[in-house]
């Protein structure tokens, strides 16, 4: 009896493992560092991902040591305001899961209601199944998942898609990881009306809004990637821009910042072209000036209010 319970040297593959070596071998250290470097802020998200990565690493070791394990449930839900990096993080998660060997291919299939729900009777099931088949071995990312369920229309085909999803999420946990994403309050409502979903998802991760400082760092990171930079004045102006923009409606965090930068680049190009006789240096072309930032509508509106 006792002999059977304790894995002895003949049955167990290994009895001791070097955790650091294993960590390096798997190569998730890189992915996690990249996550820290390239994603600004998002403290709770990063903590959670580290925890999941640690669990998966230990799970892997346990499997190698012959300790019985069921594969952990990896389905997740990401909630947060627009532009808080849900899609970006989903891509990273897929890479981490792939490195640890919990998904076989590590690709992400990103879908919304349109790709899952059909338009007439009998159209939904094949459509949903096709998407599921494409996502097998990787991660299925369902953006704005709450649109799947339309409580106002009881004959909506969304319910059929939900049922197929739930079935596959339960039966083929080894083949597929499902990540649902959406805005916080509406996702809560969605889960409240579909309790099956809530219980099948192990990790509920909330994405916080970015602070002003974080938004500035994000802007600078984006500019560096595109080989642009702020002049000192422009940076000060952009700090004011962020503060003003946040108070206005339809602010969507990093996405608004990206759009603002695109418009600033437009104005910079226009400014440079307006003076055709000038000789430009590389530095001139790279630098965004305060005037490019200040021409934004956000400032007009802000000054009117004051």
């Amino acid at each position: 009896m006792n002999e059977a319970a304790i894995p002895d040297s003949t049955t167990a593959v290994e009895t001791a493992v070097d955790l650091r070596r294993e960590f390096n071998e798997v190569g998730i250290g890189e992915v996690l560092d990249e996550l820290d470097r390239e994603l600004i802020g998002l403290k709770p998200v990063k903590t959670r991902i580290r925890e999941i990565a640690a669990l998966l690493l230990i799970e892997r070791l346990r499997k190698r040591m012959g300790l019985a394990t069921g594969n952990p449930t990896l389905h997740m839900s990401f909630t947060g305001n627009p532009g808080t990096g849900k899609t970006t993080v989903a891509l990273r998660i897929a890479a981490i899961l792939h490195k640890l060997g919990f998904v076989r291919r590590g690709h992400v299939v990103s879908v919304t209601r349109d790709e899952l729900v059909g338009q007439y009777i009998g159209h939904t099931a094949p459509k949903t199944k096709e998407v599921l088949k494409k996502a097998m071995g990787g991660v299925l990312f369902i953006d704005e998942a709450y649109y799947l369920y339309r409580p106002d229309n009881e004959r909506d085909y969304g319910q059929e898609a939900i049922e197929i999803l739930l079935q596959v999420m339960e039966n083929q946990r080894d083949d597929l990881v499902v990540i649902l994403a959406g805005y916080g309050d509406r996702m809560d409502k969605f889960f409240a009306s579909n309790p099956g979903f809530r219980s099948r998802i192990a990790h509920h991760i909330d994405f916080p809004d970015y602070s002003d400082d974080e938004l500035l760092s994000i802007a600078e990171l984006m500019l560096t990637e595109q080989n642009y930079k702020f002049s000192a004045d422009a940076e000060a102006a952009f700090v004011r821009y962020i503060a003003l923009r946040k108070t206005q409606p339809l602010f969507s965090n990093a996405r608004s910042i990206r759009n603002a930068l695109d418009r600033i680049r437009l104005r910079q190009a226009n400014r440079l072209v307006s003076d055709l006789d000038r000789v430009l240096t590389a530095d001139d072309i790279m630098t965004l000036e305060a005037s490019d930032v200040l021409a934004s509508r956000v400032f007009e509106k802000g000054s009117e209010e004051k």
Binding site: K129, K133, M136, Q172, D175
Partner: peptide
Amino acid sequence: WGLPMFDLQDAAGVLME
């Protein structure tokens, strides 16, 4: 049995069908 399965990455989808 249904249409040919295009754009699949992993055999699990075929086995399911």
